[in-house]
Amino acid sequence: MLNISLRQMRTLLAIQKHGKISAAARALGLTSPAVTLQLQQLEQDLGCQLFLRTKTGAQPTEVGDIAIQTARRILSELASFEETVQAHKGIAAGTIRLGVVSTGKYFAPRLIAAFTAVHPGISMTLVAANRSEIIQKLHDHDIDVALMGRPPTTFKVHATLFGDHPLVFIASPDHPLVGRLDISREDLAEQKFIVREKGSGTRSSFEFFMSGTPGGLRTTPTEMDSNETIKQAVIAGLGIAFISGHTIEQECLSGKLVLLDVVETPIRRQWFSIRHSSRTSTPALQALDDFLRLRGPSLLPVLSKPYPAALFQSAMTGNAAFPD
């Protein structure tokens, strides 16, 4: 029977996170010799080495990786247990580590504010990253809940649908395609595009949407790693972009960006609240699930029309003269 303490588990995770004994010691408020001693005792109890000491830092061995994953699960379960006990005492409390894909950071603060106003005893932390990174954090139990599009398929999860996620094409107000109706993929293929990096869900959706275009894109897209940079590039006239409709609310209202009326868009995806299947639900997590189902849709940004109302009415009566 192994006799591993919670302190040793926390030490193990700190070494993995910070990469060096000295950095882990600072994070834990301990001395380096104390952290080294705890690691040595743990390795002695297990009968195997957990980290390789290299010039670049401590690298987990194969057994070390297993020990790290086990420690994460155990500490996560203990946190869940503590929250459940507090709930049985009538204390509405808990902590939720929330992760969102990059496009979600535009509404996540609004969602957190609304949720904590209803549940003031529940605290939340927020981390935003691209889809690949958020999936990894969810897998590693570094976050409790992820807000993202399609659920991951590489491990089992519990997913709660809480709203639509439109993906749209945008341009600067003086772009030649602005004002046209029913823009085709072929028309788009002639344009200069600014796209997200590989690993982004928006990038994958863009490539899928344009994959059937005869001849493909005429120019190589310019890759940028954030929605903010992409929006500024489009405003500057460097090209058009395919982006989440939930990232452009303010720019559309101010007239800096315009939605393009592209055939078969907006592409409708969904937002999900996702947790690892091995993560035990707590009263706090259940409260968040219930809140998202009931109020999530109302907290998402609303898209404006991609064309002026007068232009649309003229098109319906056959009196409009649209750009070629």
Rank of each mutant, 00 (worst) to 15 (best):
M1P: 00
N3H: 08
L6I: 12
L6Q: 13
R7L: 11
R7N: 10
T11F: 01
Q16L: 03
Q16A: 14
H18D: 09
K20V: 14
A27K: 01
T31Y: 08
S32P: 04
S32E: 15
P33N: 04
A34H: 12
Q38T: 00
Q41A: 10
Q41L: 10
Q41M: 09
L42D: 06
L42S: 04
G47N: 14
L52A: 08
T54V: 06
T54Q: 13
T56G: 14
T56D: 14
G57P: 06
A58H: 11
P60N: 07
G64T: 00
D65A: 10
I68K: 09
R72N: 12
I74L: 13
I74E: 14
S76H: 02
E77Q: 12
L78M: 12
F81P: 00
A87E: 04
I91S: 12
A92E: 15
G94D: 11
L98H: 00
G99Q: 11
V100L: 07
K105S: 05
Y106G: 01
Y106N: 07
R110P: 00
A113I: 06
A117D: 14
A117C: 09
H119A: 06
G121Q: 11
M124G: 11
V127G: 03
A128W: 00
N130P: 02
R131G: 00
E133N: 04
L138G: 01
H139D: 13
H141R: 08
H141A: 12
D142S: 06
A146N: 02
G149Q: 06
T153S: 15
F155H: 13
K156E: 15
V157Y: 13
V157R: 11
H158T: 09
H158L: 08
A159T: 04
F162G: 03
G163D: 13
D164M: 06
P166W: 04
I170S: 07
I170A: 13
I170F: 09
S172Q: 11
S172W: 02
H175R: 02
P176E: 11
L177Q: 02
V178K: 03
A189G: 03
K192Q: 15
F193H: 12
K198E: 15
S200D: 14
G201C: 02
G201E: 13
R203K: 10
S204W: 09
S204C: 07
E207W: 03
E207P: 03
F208M: 14
F208I: 08
G215F: 07
L217E: 12
P221I: 02
D225R: 11
N227P: 03
I230R: 03
A233K: 03
I235F: 06
A236F: 03
G237P: 01
L238Y: 07
A241R: 06
A241C: 05
F242A: 03
F242H: 09
I243H: 05
G245C: 08
G245V: 03
T247H: 04
E249Y: 05
S254T: 02
S254D: 13
S254M: 05
K256D: 12
L257I: 00
L260N: 10
V262A: 10
V262H: 05
V263T: 10
T265V: 03
T265G: 07
I267N: 11
R268S: 06
S273K: 00
P283V: 06
P283D: 13
L288D: 12
D289Y: 05
S298E: 15
L299S: 07
P301C: 04
L303C: 07
Y307E: 01
Y307N: 07
P308I: 02
L311H: 02
F312N: 08
A315Y: 09
G318Q: 06
N319V: 07
F322N: 05
P323A: 09
